[in-house]
């Protein structure tokens, strides 16, 4: 189980990393291969392909342990440059 943290960055402009996941820790569910970076495509630029991962988070790790059913999960696709290694939460 490889734990990763979504970087807590807050740039302007079009990014495909939801606000509610920034700074949250999950595990890589699977690698999806490389896809053109939407942050470049959004402005009509040539886009390098970046590794894309499905990252699985516990709802308790996103919303706090007092959330109903904290062991339910949320999977999202996150690009490599938004992820950093992390310890288990």
């Amino acid at each position: 189980m490889q734990h990763v943290r979504v970087k807590p960055m807050m740039p302007p402009g079009h990014v495909r990393t939801p606000h509610y996941l920034r700074g949250k820790i999950g595990v890589i569910e699977r690698s999806l291969g490389a896809f053109p970076n939407p942050e470049d495509l959004a402005y009509g630029h040539a886009a390098p392909a970046l590794p894309l991962y499905r990252v699985r988070f516990r709802l308790g790790d996103i919303w706090g342990e007092d959330t109903p059913h904290p062991d339910d999960t949320l999977d999202a696709e996150i690009y490599d440059h938004w992820l950093e290694p992390a310890d288990a939460p």
Binding site: G13, H14, P38, E39, L41, A42, Y43, G44
Partner: peptide, 12 residues
């Protein structure tokens, strides 16, 4: 002429 990402950028 554009990508779906450009569509989303302007929507946002």
């Amino acid at each position: 002429y554009f990508t779906v990402d450009g569509l989303r950028r302007v929507l946002e």
